[in-house]
Design a protein around this nucleic acid. Structure first.
Lengths: 213, 213
DNA sequence: CTGAAATTTTGCAATGACTCCAAGTTTTCA
DNA sequence: TGAAAACTTGGAGTCATTGCAAAATTTCAG
């Protein structure tokens, strides 16, 4: 199914606006850039910006699109004989060990973090994303453990699993913001992951184990 | 030290504005009430409202003032031989068993929850309060375990303790919003607290035990 | 290739939160 | 009692966000 000119243009326009906006935000901070400036810099009208992005914060987090279902995907993709929590720990260790930009281990992430740090609306949006991640994890756990799970257990387990994720991301964010080197932070977070695993109960570590094939 | 007329008037004015505003919000929802309407209804100028409350959301959460350090207070006030987590569990069980309005177990809390539920800015502010609670817990744990704790452990433990708190409050909020009776929700949450305790590892349950006297 | 239909872009006006500032008012206190 | 200090107010201005209707662009059938 060939993509029409209209579709292509829309995608390009959207990407262009997002790029221009992110550049301005990283340059001067979230507050100091107005929607009108973004529109001007992107050579479109203000209304066109709103056409693609419901709110100013969406301009900043556009790239973080695939992040909200990553945890749920990791859980659904766990190995046979592996629990949800262990799958998440394994995937996180992989990303951190690889010093992956997907978890913020890259040069320049400090600029990104600083913008968020100084803008309350962006922090709010980040919490909102965490909530989405949590909801996706709950949904994944309910599906993976069978619809039989009607009680509060999937919710509680999702809380524990999201706590793992949060602890890792908050730490990476804090250390990168402090100007540390990605490789250095990577080593530190690998230790943190061991600490985290030690704090989890067996019940959590053995929840939603995928049956052997 | 006798309180001057000025102090008294300020407190009264502040309380009056907060009461009027909360009434309007519960009546018509957060979005549907403008700052100008609050000011009119309270017989003050818009600027006076901003004089007492930095933002519209502060008008709504004014009463929840003592909530941000409650967890930290519970931890600091734990019994001899009791850990931080167990103190929090004990205090929560007390409040829930007493069907206390302090944890939302009261008639009319559903109206309160509905306003929050329908207003994204209020949900954001709630997350921001959670963050404050977390920070206070970290501070309390660091002090209570001695300044020796330089590592990430207090942060991780605070995450676990706040998770307990969150799970309880989210559940109460959800059930009350669904129109359940406080007494009924109380019974249900007591069971939830048992589930929660079972999911915590011994490491968490035995962190920051207060020395015997 | 052409013109109508569908879709996107844009300009304009308005709402409402929030800030700044300077001019009143009220309360304190020497 | 008369400043000085602190609080209140009115008014103007910025900015995000929305709604609406008029262009401009793209699609597609004929």
């Amino acid at each position: 199914m060939a993509e029409g000119l209209r579709e292509r243009k829309k995608r390009q326009t959207r990407q262009h606006i997002s790029d221009v906006a992110t550049g301005l935000f990283l340059e001067r901070g979230f507050d100091a850039v107005t929607m009108a400036e973004v529109a001007d810099a992107a050579d479109v009208s203000v209304n066109t910006v709103y056409n693609y992005f419901p709110a100013k914060e969406d301009l900043f987090f556009d790239r973080s699109a695939g992040m909200v279902d990553r945890l749920a995907r990791w859980i659904r993709g766990r190995d046979a004989g592996e629990s949800a929590a262990r799958a998440v720990l394994r995937e996180l260790r992989g990303e951190v060990e690889a010093v992956s930009p997907r978890v913020g281990l890259m040069v320049g992430y400090d600029r990104f973090m600083r913008v968020i740090h100084e803008a309350p609306p962006l922090r709010s949006r980040l919490w909102s994303l965490q909530q989405e991640i949590h909801d996706n994890v709950v949904a994944a756990l309910r599906e993976e453990t069978g619809a039989a799970e009607e009680g509060p257990l999937p919710d509680l387990m999702a809380g524990q699993i999201c706590w793992i994720h949060q602890a890792v991301f908050v730490t990476i964010g804090r250390e990168m913001l402090a100007g540390r080197e990605p490789a250095e932070v990577s080593r530190e977070v690998l230790v943190l992951l061991d600490d985290i695993e030690e704090l989890l109960s067996e019940k959590v570590l053995n929840y939603a184990v995928r049956a052997a094939p």
